[in-house]
Amino acid sequence: MRVSRAQAEENRETVINVASRLFREHGFDGIGLKDLMKGAGLTQGGFYKQFSSKDDLAAQASRRALESATRRWSTAAATSSDPLEAVMEFYLSPGHLGEKADGCPLVALGSDAARQNAEVRRPFEDGIRAHFEVLDELMGDARSSNPSGKAMAILSLMVGAVTLSRIMEDESLSQGILDAAAGEVRRIAHGDDVA
């Protein structure tokens, strides 16, 4: 059956969106093309009409995930009089620990991304820069094209905390990591720039 251009575009979007969730849930190597396409309600045969390779899809799905994560941060920041607290409230929360497929792609795929080729790493690099920018903006006085030391330290701390916290079976330790990170983030944000 011939597929209309609009339908083909919609299918492609669906594959990217579904892949962006499934990669976060299973890792880049934890899921094959067949299951990705099945998740999108399509057959595997159509894949190479839409994407040049699995890496191509991984790059686009990662870009989508990081754009949406950036938007989540800036929306949280915009809707509160204390934007840093608003970001921490969702990010360093037990709820976020449970959102493997919809949560932060830096946590879900970060160490995996470092093992990928440049095409797949690129959206992560761009997304990390975007997160630094949101942090610098919400801490005020962002003027440079380069991220501040504070932003770099805070993001590293937050991503690390959720990564470790998600591993722990011990719930009180898991929560302890999040709380400790939140305290340190506040200290860094209100102190002098570390870099």
Partner: peptide
């Protein structure tokens, strides 16, 4: 566009 938006999409 928002700088963070521009950065995220490269």
């Amino acid at each position: 566009e928002a700088l963070s938006h521009a950065l995220a999409r490269g």
